[in-house]
């Protein structure tokens, strides 16, 4: 009898500790980045590209990487978005419940599990095949493919929760499938679609393994998509490898910049979702 009570108490405690460890790890990580990053932060870091002796600890900042990452993030998430919306519309409006649709869902699930380094290698192969050089465009395509399954899953999950009666009503009034998709489904799923877009953007900006092969690195701010571009994760990685303390501190500052961008994206996607949910029939 005593043992039963004791076991229950013990596990009551353990599950709470485990939960605290898990959410605590998030706070510890963010706190570490803040503590190390804030002292190393300066206006120059976010307003100037690296100048002459930047990697020896002299003047400059990481504007090249910030701009590069934002270009890459926008490009890749838009590219993935343009591919994903039609796929999700097809699965849910044109061919719901068919074998092919089930097949698409499974392959998207599997694509979701493929690590970014493999996408990087694949992007590299395409790049060579088309005779392209390391460039922003190659990065956008590669990261776009990486983001595609993440977006598709998120959107698909949201669209599947829309009551079937809504699209039935629209179709029965004589609307075509395309009109139903655009005017009923997409509008209803707007919060989910925006969340998916932001989620993709966040993932695209933070990914490093796939851009090593395809986007390259440069100290200049790219002026066309055929030029290589610097990205924040790689900038952090390279600066961190430096033997000079000044430069390592800059890695901390760059990590802080990246973390802040990611947190803004992830928190605003949450708020957007909440706001748009008001206009949706449930």
């Amino acid at each position: 009898m005593f043992w039963r009570k004791f076991e229950e108490r013990l596990f009551n405690l353990l599950i709470r500790i485990a939960t605290l460890i898990i959410i605590g790890s998030l706070f510890v990580i963010i706190l570490t980045i803040l503590i190390k990053g804030i002292p190393a932060m300066s206006w120059d870091m976010i307003s100037k590209p690296p100048s002459g002796g930047f990697y020896l600890g002299k003047e400059g900042g990481v504007l090249n990487a910030i701009v590069g990452s934002i270009y890459l993030g926008i490009g890749a998430s838009l590219f993935a978005f343009l591919l994903t919306v039609p796929v999700v519309v097809y699965m849910n409006v044109y061919a719901p419940g068919t074998k092919f649709t089930r097949f698409i869902r499974i392959s998207l699930d599997i694509l979701y599990g493929i690590p970014s380094i493999v996408y990087g290698a694949f992007g590299f192969i395409i790049m060579i095949y088309f005779g392209m050089k390391v460039s922003l465009l190659a990065g956008i395509v590669t990261v776009g493919l990486l983001v595609l399954p993440i977006m598709a899953r998120t959107m698909d999950e949201v669209i599947r929760t829309i009551p079937k009666e809504l699209s039935d009503a629209s179709l029965s009034l004589g609307a075509t499938k395309w009109e139903t998709a655009m005017k009923v489904i997409v509008r209803q799923a707007m919060p989910g679609i925006l969340t998916a877009l932001l989620l993709g953007f966040g993932r695209a900006i933070g990914d490093a393994a796939s851009v090593i092969f395809t986007t390259g690195f440069t100290d200049n701010i790219p002026t066309s998509i055929f030029q290589p571009a610097a990205t924040l994760p790689l900038a952090i990685f390279f600066q961190l490898g430096s033997p000079i303390q000044e430069v390592v501190n800059r890695a901390y500052a760059s990590a802080l910049i990246l973390t802040i961008i990611i947190l803004i994206v992830s928190i605003s996607s949450r708020m957007l979702t909440r706001r748009f949910k008001k206009n949706v029939i449930s």
Binding site: V28, I33, G206, A208, P233, I236, S266
Partner: peptide, 10 residues
Amino acid sequence: GIPSVIFGIW
């Protein structure tokens, strides 16, 4: 959503 490079630096 935290990028892997941040985990690495931590």
